[in-house]
Computed example of a mutant assay.
Amino acid sequence: MPIDAAKALAAEPRSAEISWDSKDVQLYHLGIGAGIPATDPDELRYTLESRLHVLPSFATVAGGGKGVVGGIAGPGLDIDLASVLHGGQTVVLHRPIPVSGSATSTSQVAAVYDKGKAAVLVLRTEAADADGPLWTSDAQIFVRGEGGFGGERGPSARLELPAREPDKTVDKAVREDQALLYRLSGDFNPLHADPEFAARAGFDRPILHGLCSYGMTLKAVVDTLLGGDVARVRSYTTRFAGVVFPGETLRIRMWQQDVSKVQVSVTAVERDDAPVLADTLVTLVETS
């Protein structure tokens, strides 16, 4: 069978040296929609090297890696890309990401879950530089048709939305070319660019990277509730509940739960608020 869970879990962690600079950070920020309006001082924090800070979700592309595509090519894994969807993502920050730097990135399959008709892989990446740990990133990869091997089903807890109106709601337009720009940060899965490949995967046109909507959402939270202070983010987790098509509008609803966390829901406006991101939580560093 294409997934050998025991072999995948027993494989030695893979380490690689990664590096990034201000240009990589700027390209990522542009890929998630930063820079509009181009001269807005708040947007220049994402686009102008003399004012640059790093959105924590940059951890998912730092080093120009292959993203989800590179993570599913290890021992015990022989997977058709057309069967793969990104199911969820968590990033834990150990300290703010520098504008430029280098680190050792260590990756491994942390878990393999059997969902019956599908398998879920948890791909864990830890990055550390000379000063210590930088971030830990867990990608949950949904592989259709690869379940039924008798493994654990894994966690399935859902985060209920608050029974009140959101504290803030922001609409963010997804440009028609957004997936084409975002993929330049490293995830070249043809699902996001090639109409023929998208059709083979069951979509009538290419879809936006889940991690692009993930980044767009975190930027909205940082800009709307945190005064643009990226250092306030301790961790950020989500479940990808539905696809986004370039040209659509994301509606991002935010609930400030207390000083330490923000709960978020993201939907697609043009498809009657179809779910995009669910079980989404940003935990914060408390200020004195």
Rank of each mutant, 00 (worst) to 15 (best):
G145S: 06
T237R: 15
G64W: 06
D194I: 07
P246F: 14
F149C: 09
L281G: 06
D187K: 08
D40S: 13
W20T: 00
E146P: 11
T249L: 09
E49I: 03
T280N: 03
G65K: 04
A198Y: 03
L9G: 09
T106D: 05
G150N: 04
Y113C: 02
W20P: 02
K172S: 12
G101D: 09
V222D: 10
D258F: 10
A10K: 12
Q256F: 01
D258G: 04
S57V: 05
T267I: 07
G228A: 08
L30I: 15
K172I: 14
A73S: 14
V269G: 04
F240P: 06
G88E: 15
M254D: 05
Q257F: 01
E43S: 06
A241K: 00
P195N: 02
L159T: 14
T283A: 04
V143R: 02
L81W: 03
D223C: 02
T249K: 11
I97M: 15
S185L: 09
I36E: 12
P96D: 04
W255C: 11
T238N: 11
G70V: 05
A110V: 05
P75E: 09
S105M: 14
K23Q: 06
K115H: 08
V54F: 05
G35E: 08
P13S: 12
V233W: 07
G147H: 05
V230F: 01
A111N: 14
V170R: 15
E176N: 09
A34F: 03
L284P: 04
F188G: 02
S50I: 11
G71V: 02
I97C: 07
R45F: 07
V91W: 00
V222A: 12
Y46R: 02
A268W: 04
L93K: 01
S288G: 13
V276F: 03
V143E: 09
E248G: 13
T283Y: 04
I36F: 12
G67I: 11
R234A: 15
A198E: 05
L161F: 00
E126T: 13
D138T: 02
V61F: 05
S22V: 10
H86D: 10
L52H: 02
A231I: 03
I79V: 15
